[in-house]
């Protein structure tokens, strides 16, 4: 049985900064994962629907606009509403350290800020999947 880690890389909100998301997408691909990129300007609903249809193991969201405290928890709420508890959700981008505990409390497993080597992210994903590989 072939088992691939599938990841949705998503850009929720009106934020147009996509370099980081693309860097992450390529790094995950190079680590052997299958990456579905949503493109820019996604609503939380679109992110969650795409994650369901693609049956991903991981949702990886990137936000640099400052709207993370609103958008990340909104995605977590939608997942809870739909009783989806086996998807690992991580975030990244320009996110102040002070905001990170609140995001984790909302269910974001980890937050990766500028300067984090992509190998750290890859390792975290591999070690924290909620569905067995």
């Amino acid at each position: 049985m072939e088992r691939k880690i599938r990841v949705l890389v998503a850009k929720p909100g009106l934020d147009g900064h996509d370099r980081g998301a693309k860097v992450i997408a390529r790094a995950l691909r190079d680590a052997g994962m299958e990456v579905i990129y949503t493109g820019l300007r996604q609503t939380p609903e679109q992110v969650v629907n795409a994650a369901i249809q693609e049956d991903v193991d991981v949702i990886a969201m990137s936000i640099l606009s400052g709207a993370h405290n609103h958008l990340f928890p909104r995605v977590m709420d939608l997942l809870k509403e739909k009783k989806i508890d086996d998807v690992l959700v991580v975030g990244g981008g320009v996110i102040p350290d002070d905001d990170i505990p609140g995001l984790k409390a909302a269910g974001i497993a980890e937050v990766f800020t500028p300067g984090t080597p992509t190998t750290t992210t890859i390792e975290f994903i591999r070690n924290n999947l909620k569905r067995k590989v």
């Binding site: 299958e34 579905i36 629907n49 249809q53």
Partner: peptide
Amino acid sequence: TGGAILGDRIRMQRHAD
């Protein structure tokens, strides 16, 4: 690597809702 970037969805994502 066996990895992939599946980019077709970007162009169709407006239908996600």
